[in-house]
Amino acid sequence: MSTTGKVHLPTGQEALEKKGWFGAHKYLVLRRLSQAFFLLLFLLGPWFGIWWVQGNLAGSMTFGFLPLNDPLILAQMMAAGHWPETTALIGGLIVLVAYALIGGRVYCSWVCPINPVTDAAHWLHVKLGLQKGWQPKRSARLWILATVLIVSALTGTIAWEVINPVTMVHRGLVFGMGFVWALVAAIFVFDLVVARRGWCGHVCPVGAFYGLIGAKSLLRVSAVRRDACDDCMDCYEVCPENQVISPALRGKGASTPLILSPDCTNCGRCIDVCAMDVFAFTHRFDDHVETPTDAAATSRPPKQTAA
């Protein structure tokens, strides 16, 4: 599908005109509500004395009987030579299974409170027209993950928790932000001027860990109507891991339309901004491709705007 003669409209503009504001931002809004919901659950106790959940994203007890523990923290504990208690192991197993089924990096886009910070940095980066900046290899976060486990083993500590911004933000909201503001600002500036999408895409070992967990997950985004694609490139513009799109969108014949890369965060932004409704959530066993029945859809010329 040629892009010759096309001049790019503002990202999401066509979807905005076709779907309306909410339709073009549905999954973004739902993600923000989800992130606020999970954060509020942990703050109900300290702020309002409502102890439905005790703890934080590192480890918690819900309604006094349901343990939930970050399996990466448990992995660091075991690397450090400290065997977790049975309750913690059960909580870690519950989280492990949940993210293995729904997609590990769903944590990054639907739960992590740092995600709105990095999204805001990317929005401003685009608005200011800044250069892409330094882009370390995406495998760097895997090396950082390995380093975290090695340092835990050598020091006998849960190494990442010393600087984990998620844990520090939660504690800051309870006991006072103080230095935490500087850490959050550093992540924002890093993504803004040093490396576009750098923190989540290239650095954070938590994202790397959950990506490994969800490598074979059930929940997937599919380019189910890829034949209707008009090459607007909006999906590439908004995707935080846009290298995952091409194998599904540009595939031909019997190639799967599913985005199978564990790097995909299942954020749903590609679904939001696509005016042609090319993408949809489905499961990993649903690899059918819809053939457009509307003749206008199949013969639609590329978008034209004034140069």
Results as ranks from 00 to 15, higher is better:
L124R: 08
G172T: 04
Y210Q: 00
P257H: 04
S217A: 14
C204N: 04
H202V: 13
V224L: 03
G253V: 06
T4I: 14
A153L: 12
V95L: 06
E85Y: 13
G81F: 06
T305N: 13
C235K: 00
H170N: 08
H125N: 07
A15L: 03
C235T: 04
T62Q: 05
I94D: 00
T4M: 13
A120E: 13
A182R: 11
P71Y: 06
S34R: 09
W52V: 10
L68R: 04
L258F: 03
P136R: 03
V289Q: 02
A295N: 14
R171G: 14
S139E: 14
L39V: 12
P71S: 01
C267L: 04
M61R: 04
M77I: 11
K127L: 13
G178I: 08
H8R: 13
T147M: 11
K303D: 06
D294W: 00
A275V: 04
H202T: 15
T4E: 15
I144W: 02
I163M: 08
T11I: 09
A75Y: 03
P10H: 09
D231Y: 09
H8S: 04
A88D: 12
T3A: 14
A248Q: 03
N115Q: 13
W47C: 06
P262Y: 12
V278I: 14
K6Q: 06
W181Y: 11
S2L: 03
S34W: 15
V126N: 08
L192Q: 03
A36Q: 08
A307V: 09
E290L: 12
F279H: 01
H288S: 14
H288K: 14
P205Y: 05
K132D: 15
H288Q: 10
W199Q: 02
L93W: 14
K19M: 04
K18S: 14
R284S: 06
C274L: 05
C112E: 00
P116R: 09
V7A: 09
A15E: 02
L39P: 01
G268P: 02
Y99F: 15
C229A: 00
L154R: 08
K303C: 08
E161K: 05
P292L: 03
S222G: 10
L93S: 10
L260V: 13
A296T: 08
R32V: 14
R300N: 11
K18A: 11
L219T: 02
V162A: 15
R269T: 01
F279P: 00
S255W: 02
K6V: 07
R269K: 11
L40V: 13
L154H: 05
L74V: 11
W123G: 02
L40C: 09
D287Y: 11
Y210N: 01
A146T: 05
C108F: 00
V221F: 01
N266G: 08
L192H: 05
E17H: 15
D191E: 13
D191A: 06
G91I: 07
